[in-house]
Amino acid sequence: MWPVFKKELKTYFLSPIGYICIGIFLLVFSTFFYMTTIQSISIDLGYLYFYTAQYGLLIITPILTMRLFAEERKNGTEQLLLTSPRSITGIVLGKFLAAVIVILIILIISFMYYVILTFFGEPNLVPTLIMMLGFLLLAMAAISAGMFASSITENQIISAIITIAFLIVPWFLLSISDGFSLINLMSSYSKFPAGILSTTEVVSLVSFTIMFLLFTIIVMRRRKTVK
């Protein structure tokens, strides 16, 4: 798992992808920071993390995940991975963690908004950390879904579109029936922005993540017999 993790993380920052992701995120964060705190004279970071999660992840997730497996399949390097003595589970987890680390870097940088607010008032630290934790869990669920999309195609564009569709379509479905909130990631991210640690939401997001990780592993395993 670790060699794959290290190599993937390195690849993010050898190509512009890692920097682009961090750049976009900071732009989105800063814009919402201005709108939700400074403009509305508030020291509540909840809206910041909610809106950034909703719109930022929509852009970042596909960029981070689309190449993970699709590129390997297209270039044939998948053959090197799958004929090595490493387990498929390890390979999938390594790639997953590398993408999560990029998000983690962004989150750590985002702590500066909390620091900025301390100059203007007394924001609460614990709720902010809970917001960040929620954000991380949400990003992990989105990344695992994106990685699954990458594992089922060799075309990165298709993989990206599937990921965006997965994140965006439930928003519209919600207006048809509340039942669709089950497949809507953002529905499991409603209490975190208020600084409340809800077991339901943690379990829900973690299950989402595990489910898509398993799907990815199954797809990669099946390729041996299908190909």
Partner: peptide, 22 residues
Amino acid sequence: PESVPLYTELTVKEFIKYMAQL
């Protein structure tokens, strides 16, 4: 493999090291 798949964004040494770790 036939198509000689390589991680072209790595250097020769990095690639061989990665393969060794794998």
